[in-house]
Design a protein around this nucleic acid. Sequence first.
RNA 1: GCGGGGUUAGCUCAGCUGGUCAGAGCGCCACCCUUACAAGGUGGAAGCCGCAGGUUCGAGUCCUGCACCCCGCACCA
Length: 908
Amino acid sequence: MPHRYDPRQAEERWTRWWEENRVFHARVDSDKPRFSMVIPPPNVTGVLHVGHALDQTLQDIFARWHRMQGKETLWLPGTDHAGIATQVRVEEELAKEGLSRHDLGREAFVERVWQWKHHYGGRILEQLKGLGASCDWERERFTMDEGCSRAVRHVFVHLYRKGLIYQGDYIVHWCPRCQTTLSDIEVEHEEEEGRLWTLRYPAAEGEGEIRVATTRPETMLGDTAVAVHPEDERYRAWIGRRVRLPLMDREIPVVADEAVDPAFGTGAVKVTPAHDPTDFEIGQRHNLPQIQVIGQDARMTAEAGRFQGLTREEARQAVLEALRAGGFLVGEEPLRHAPGRCYRCGTVVEPLVSRQWFVRMKPLAEPAIRAVEEGRVRFVPEHFTRMYLHWMRNVRDWCISRQLWWGHRIPVWTCQACGTQSASEEDLVRCPECGSERLEQDPDVLDTWFSSALWPFATLGWPDDTPDLRRFYPTDLLVTGYEIIFFWVARMIMMGIEFMGEPPFPTVLIHGIVRDSLGRKMSKSLGNGVDPMEVIAEYGADALRFSLVQGVGPGNDLRFRTDRVESARNFANKVWNASRFAILNLADADRAALEALAGSPDGLQAWKEREALTLADRWILSRYQWAASEVHRLLERFDPGEAAQVLYEFIWSDLCDAYIELVKPRLYQGGDDPESEAARQRRAAQATLFAVLDGSLRLLHPFMPYLTEEIWQRLPVHGPTLARAAWPRPQGLEDPEAEKQVGRVLEVIRAIRNLRAERGVEPSRRVTAVLRAEPALLEALQAMEREIRALARLERLELVAPGGAVPEREAAVTAVAGGVEIYLPLAGLVDLEKERARLEKELAAAREEAARARALLERPGFKEKAPAHVVQQQEARLAEAEAKEAKLLDQLAALERAGAGGNGAHGA
RNA sequence: GCGGGGUUAGCUCAGCUGGUCAGAGCGCCACCCUUACAAGGUGGAAGCCGCAGGUUCGAGUCCUGCACCCCGCACCA
């Protein structure tokens, strides 16, 4: 076994082996309890970023955990067709050939996108395999595959017939670059520096003028009114009058509307119903005409008169100039505002009036709200519930039509003969009303999220009643980031209830986003993204996974730091080397004996030489038991970050730093005679080491699958794959007495090491230690004498009962730890002054400790009201501190006598 | 404006149902290539747990107020 873990070759090998052996395949016909989960489908054009890596790692931990618990585990992978992103990608490719999609025509273009998808799409899933994701790759799905497409049509037609999908002329967000509509949540607002101009609109008749403020002067060309608040005294007289719109020479009315904020700007607002959502609504209320002055290409239309053809930006300048020239521009000031931008490309969206398809949300939202209120769907951490409910209670209708070619085409046909509009699951060739074959299908496609909303059941075969669907729906857990709670989670809940009669999952585990080391969001424009594949190449997939999980607090964002990955890599190497040590020392172990110990719930209980286990063995088994139950408990609470921390600390501190060192003397001792005491002790050590290592690898496997599988396969006894080995359950190994005693022994060892370090004793120099303690403790020290000598690097260890002789004060350095008085006779190294200083410092600490416990115990009401075990605990703490204080005082007194009688340091 | 989150060691963050909880990683100091591991070992320094009150026998841990930071939603003429 090499002395360093090499992730690369292990990862390649096991990725292949797991897949070839269908280790992650979920059988629909097994009678085991099931666990099912669907992947949040990544964008088919996408490449893995570190945010996916976190999301996938969390899911994989739960999938592997349940699989090891014997559940028939389905984790279903796939991608979504990402309408805008994919179409844009292929259009860019075409552009290099000097072509546009219109040159190809719709059919050929869509064909071309499919080709692209087959070639490049889904690379992200290959990357997921490299991360160790234990998906059932045989069940990979795509939102545009045949089954999902059928589901989409079925859903559309159902909602259409139910009156929950309607078509209407509304103002919607239009992205001039992507050339499509966007839903409300696809528009992002971020504050930036803008300007607020004040314009002067003169009265059409009579005297006066009204001043309006605007951030978009170019839209004034399409103004069809000025609005003021009905209660606003300043403008009361203006209501009903008309003003003359500059540049356009058009008379427009002044109307009163509640939507106007009298405190903002001048208190009067220009109304452009065709280019502003609020103005659109004002226009509806007052029957105002809509004049579209900006087109879908973000250039001025013919309605803009002499400004026709200019871009929005050019028009703004030109309009301002013209206004200024005409004396209509009366003010300009800076203003922070947040214009809407396309979440895909960042272009400022243009609100435009057009005919679009909408989903009526209220009827769908109500049961989805109830499901969460009644706890049938639960968010973890819980506070995301409020976010969900708040949004759902105020939800607005969802614009689902997109002016793209790549996507599910809206299954609605309009008869050119009789004008009937029909929705149909099958392609319509004949008008159901008049029988005409002159039918035209709606040109738009559906929002990608419309199909994603069906993901948990469409991927299991719905609308057919399939065995998969019956077996694996509803799923058991959804893991995703908070940024898509509205986009995806809420819509899945609505659709799941509407079409399956129950929510698609009982639990939604929400995590934060991964930021860069400075806490900034990762973005292409900043160039601060981290490529997980590069991280994997350098540190290994397990290290990346572990560093992400370790850094994750419930629902919180986390910063990606290379030093954490490095630390996780070091941990992997630590596990590797500890295992290497164990495996080397298990070479001659009795396989049959180990067999009984491997992963068996009562292996150690039933082990035939159980009585040979030492205090140290019982200690590590107890610690292991604690770690195992903690990890299990924390995973049940959906807190893998804390679980990872428990494992890290148990393996590194207890197993590696303490137990392996403690066990070395026994393992290194020879013994040709298998009946000898030495041989028995050695077998006990091997058994314990094996049982704990085997169990630890199982516990660690969901977090670091490759490393653990690679090691596990090298154990003298192992199964076909750790991925399906049994998850450790309680085995009754708790041993409080052993924990306490070994805890004290370790304290003593640390104190001796401390004394050596402070006195500058070379590590290679063997010294003698004299320990004085109560009989009960003495027994433990006696039992572990060899281990103490090894770890504290002692030549000799003398154990002395209370009152027994200890070295002369001037000839030894001393300490008190774990209830034991420690004397190190260090000829020539004793400095009485330093000794005094150190002992006094310790004494102060002990006194402080005692004082704290005493204060608590003496506090009025404490003994009466605090639970008994807490009182006992504090009493024990006080007794311990007082005992230590007494011992230190003894040592100090001895020091005084020595100091008075001698001249400090001299040989013993 | 409504809602949520955060403020704990130099840095990044854990601390669940209030009672050894003052922790980890990285960094820092000293010593050590001790036969699993220098991607390591041993020892060490370092924090009045944002501020002010309150509840309680007892509060980083619960409540109230305040300050600063972050994020949703709405508004953004």
